[in-house]
Amino acid sequence: MADHSGPGTHSSPAPSGVAPAPPVAAGRRVPLLQDVLEIIEELWPSSLAESWDAVGLVTGRRDRPVELIHFAVDPVRTVVEEACSAEADLLITHHPLLLRPVQSVEAGSFKGEIVHRLIESGCALLTAHTNGDSAVGGVNDVLAEILGLEDAKPLQAAEDGLAEEGLGRIGSLPQGTTLGDFAATVFSILPAVAGGVRVAGDRDAFIRRVALCGGAGDGLLRAAREADADVYITGDLRHHPASEAREAVRDGRPYLIDVSHFASEWLWLPAAAQALDRALADRGYDVEVAVSGINTDPWDFVITPGR
């Protein structure tokens, strides 16, 4: 698996019937896009996606061979240009390009431009969003593993999934620590972004039980409290939900750690790429899989008191 270096980090992270024979390119056994889609469905089942989500294949022909796959968080211009310039056959992004309905994809709009660039370059686009969050080995499992959580389980179990599948995770640290030291650990494992990490709570408070949700997770604030979490980590915490969550408890728990949406989900990409690479190899396919190193966090700099 070829792996592009990731965004800057504070420390080192991580059909029915008889199917046609797969093409062979220069001695390599190459899958068709449909073959890759079937493997992806096994890894990150679309049934795990939230009802409002838009996951699966966005562009691409299922009968085209796939020799190079790129992974990224966001299907933005720079990422699409990187994948197309590298002659990737498939770009897998965590975030959807067409989550909200559009009336046109004419090339003068930024989404239309992206769709045209992908099609004209022969690069398919696939989204693995909330199904990638909820799946075993998905965004939240990877984040929990990197933080060293033990006995991690979903904060909100999947309706039609396994017990291990669902949104968010709740688990315990092997040893307790202070909120300040734990927040510093969180900061150290995430890709470097302008916004850094924000913390609500007593810096010296003892914590051990940790809840988390990669991406935007203020909808799970109550679940984190009901799970008796000492601290809850997520991204995009809005003022009112965060304020009300703090006011709803007398002892301040769960304390809150607000991180970059992009950073919390980028950590999944190397693990996802490795899982797909291994699954392809297990079926005898030889495919190059790469992870984009482009930082697509939308913020460029931050001004703080005294600076």
Score class of each variant (00 low, 15 high):
1 M>L: 12
2 A>S: 14
3 D>K: 12
7 P>W: 06
8 G>H: 08
11 S>F: 04
14 A>L: 12
14 A>I: 10
14 A>V: 13
17 G>W: 08
19 A>V: 08
20 P>S: 10
22 P>Q: 03
23 P>G: 03
23 P>M: 05
25 A>D: 12
25 A>Q: 13
26 A>Q: 15
28 R>K: 15
30 V>D: 04
30 V>F: 05
30 V>K: 02
31 P>C: 07
31 P>Q: 06
34 Q>K: 12
35 D>P: 03
39 I>V: 14
40 I>N: 02
43 L>S: 05
44 W>P: 00
44 W>H: 14
48 L>E: 03
52 W>R: 06
52 W>N: 02
59 T>Q: 10
61 R>Q: 13
61 R>M: 06
64 R>A: 13
68 L>K: 15
68 L>G: 00
71 F>L: 14
72 A>L: 09
74 D>F: 07
75 P>M: 11
78 T>I: 01
83 A>T: 05
84 C>R: 05
86 A>G: 12
88 A>C: 12
89 D>P: 07
89 D>N: 15
90 L>W: 07
92 I>L: 15
98 L>P: 00
100 R>M: 01
104 S>G: 07
104 S>L: 06
106 E>M: 02
107 A>P: 05
110 F>H: 13
111 K>E: 02
112 G>V: 05
114 I>D: 00
115 V>Q: 06
115 V>G: 01
116 H>E: 12
118 L>H: 05
118 L>K: 05
119 I>C: 06
120 E>V: 00
123 C>H: 08
124 A>H: 08
126 L>N: 01
127 T>M: 11
132 G>L: 15
132 G>P: 03
134 S>G: 01
136 V>W: 01
144 A>D: 10
147 L>D: 04
148 G>R: 06
153 K>T: 11
154 P>R: 06
156 Q>P: 00
161 G>R: 09
164 E>F: 02
164 E>N: 10
164 E>P: 01
165 E>K: 11
171 G>I: 09
175 Q>K: 14
177 T>R: 13
177 T>F: 03
181 D>L: 12
182 F>A: 00
186 V>D: 04
191 P>A: 06
191 P>D: 09
192 A>I: 04
193 V>F: 02
193 V>H: 10
194 A>W: 03
198 R>E: 09
199 V>K: 03
200 A>T: 08
203 R>P: 01
204 D>N: 12
209 R>L: 02
209 R>E: 02
213 C>N: 14
213 C>S: 14
222 R>Q: 15
223 A>L: 14
224 A>R: 12
228 D>C: 11
233 I>H: 04
234 T>Q: 07
234 T>D: 09
238 R>E: 09
239 H>S: 05
239 H>N: 07
239 H>G: 01
243 S>P: 00
248 A>H: 11
249 V>N: 05
255 Y>H: 15
256 L>Y: 04
258 D>Y: 07
261 H>K: 07
262 F>A: 05
265 E>K: 11
269 L>W: 10
273 A>H: 06
276 L>G: 03
279 A>D: 07
281 A>M: 01
284 G>S: 07
285 Y>L: 02
286 D>T: 10
287 V>I: 03
287 V>K: 08
290 A>R: 15
300 D>A: 09
300 D>V: 09
303 I>C: 09
304 T>Q: 12
304 T>G: 01
305 P>Q: 06
306 G>P: 08
